[in-house]
Design a protein around this nucleic acid. Sequence first.
DNA 1: GCGACAG
DNA 2: ATCTTGTCGC
Length: 219
Amino acid sequence: MIEDWPATPDEAVALQLRMAPLVDPRPPAGFAPRTAAGLDVAYDEDRLAAAVVVLDIASLETVDQVVVPGVTDFPYVPGLFAFRELPALLGALERLTTSPDLLICDGQGVAHPRRFGLASHLGVVTGLPSIGVAKTPMGHYDPPGPERGDWTELTDGGDVVGRALRTQREIKPLFVSIGHRIDLDTACAQVLRLAPKYRQPETTRRADHLCREALVLDR
DNA sequence: GCGACAG
DNA sequence: ATCTTGTCGC
């Protein structure tokens, strides 16, 4: 499934440079996502659990979920985060009953040194529209206003790569960037819609809870 | 050369 | 990511 999987950081960087041009910032024709999947991974030593939870965007009800166990192959290296989580997340995605319309990822999309963070990598590999939602920025930004929905640009090397988006009043913003096949306005609107009550989107919250629980039960 | 650097 | 106490609020 995953050809030429890198064994070293140098190979991983080379793969990102080859794949970054494959990111398509244009949404599919008539894009109107009905479901969104949250993806997250939890760790315990060399074990991990990857979870995907699919929500109906309108009702925020869970319509499908999968969690799979795995092992950590790749060390955590800033900029190469995807190589740690991608294999397990793809395995979980394959086991879903239905294909989600949109992927909400825990990390950067194009707000990344090589414009190819986890969300972009997942989007390109699956062909699905994807959004990167990170808790910490990779780039520079000025603090947005205090209200829910307030935002400022996230920049890197002179490029606008995403937004610092406040999802709750006076709560630290999230850092949203496009992953693949979506535009930044739509990405931010979807994140806001999915986060009516807490800082993080419901998709991410449920996937987080699910993989943590699985890690404990599998032990 | 030194610091910064998603989870 | 994970480690952690008490504390505030619904």
